[in-house]
């Protein structure tokens, strides 16, 4: 490598300020602000319908921003169409996985690298995905729709990583999965962060698991951030314990 090591961009990797977004006549997000620093795992916890997925989808450009600003990696992201966002280094593993059911596992991974023009690098990254998720290599020629829920979640994460993102957005990776599989998925998220320095914005209903892997957390209630703190502090906050940890 001839280039000098790049200095990290000053300030947070993702900065969301006073975001408003919604569907039709309804505003789902109300002046929502949050940030993710490089190398951080940040989680948004909250009940069903609080606006967690809407937050991620607005950052990705799938849902239109009505007011407020989103900065990513030092540039203004607001208004960027969804298909351009991934080129800037943001990738999402969406709620419900959204695997392409009639593409093979390998083709799903290739779709994740759709914006890349380095076939060699893509092939290498597919091999890396197989190292991270050996089950995907065994299933590589099968249609994605035939995978189990846990396998589909692994594929969704691997597919998102194929674009070599700077920030990985994970929407409910634990949804509908057996407890051991959930533990496995969260181990992988932790490993991605610790070994590869991947920054992660994680949306979860499973607050306990999310707060265990995250550095910081936000609590989202009906479109508003009500509490934010270090993940460890949130885990011990009596209000959070009662409302989100079932104690």
């Amino acid at each position: 490598m001839s280039a000098a090591p790049q200095a990290p961009a000053p300030g947070p990797l993702l900065k969301v300020e006073n975001l408003e977004a919604g569907y039709g006549a309804i505003n789902v997000l109300h002046r929502l602000s949050l940030y993710v620093d490089p190398g951080e795992i940040v989680t948004i916890i909250g009940a069903n319908g609080a606006g967690k997925s809407t937050t991620l989808n607005t950052v990705c450009g799938v849902v239109k921003t009505r007011a407020g600003r989103i900065h990513f990696d030092g540039r203004l992201l607001t208004g960027t169409p969804a298909h351009d966002v991934v080129r800037l280094g943001l990738a999402q593993s969406p709620e419900g996985r959204k695997i392409f059911p009639r593409l093979t596992v390998r083709e799903n991974l290739e779709m994740g690298a759709f914006t890349r023009r380095d076939p060699e690098g893509v092939r290498e990254d597919i091999q890396k995905s197989y190292q991270m998720f050996p089950i995907l290599e065994k299933r590589q020629a099968q249609p994605g729709g035939l995978l189990s829920g846990g396998e589909q979640q692994m594929l969704a994460i691997a597919r998102a990583l194929m674009s070599r993102p700077k920030l990985l957005l994970l929407d409910e990776p634990s949804l509908g999965l057996a407890p051991q599989i959930v533990v496995q998925i969260f181990d992988i998220i932790k490993e991605l962060n610790q070994k590869q320095g991947m920054s992660v914005l994680l949306v979860e209903q499973n607050a306990r698991m999310a707060l265990k892997v995250a550095h910081r957390g936000y609590v989202l209630e009906t479109g508003r951030i009500t509490v934010t703190d270090n993940a460890a502090a949130l885990l011990h906050d009596p209000r959070i314990r009662e409302a989100y940890l079932g104690e």
Partner: peptide, 17 residues
């Protein structure tokens, strides 16, 4: 491939770029 992906899941296709 983009056409097949879009036919199978347009939202996911957008997220792929």
């Amino acid at each position: 491939k983009a056409m097949r992906a879009t036919a199978q899941n347009p939202t996911a296709a957008q997220l792929m770029g």
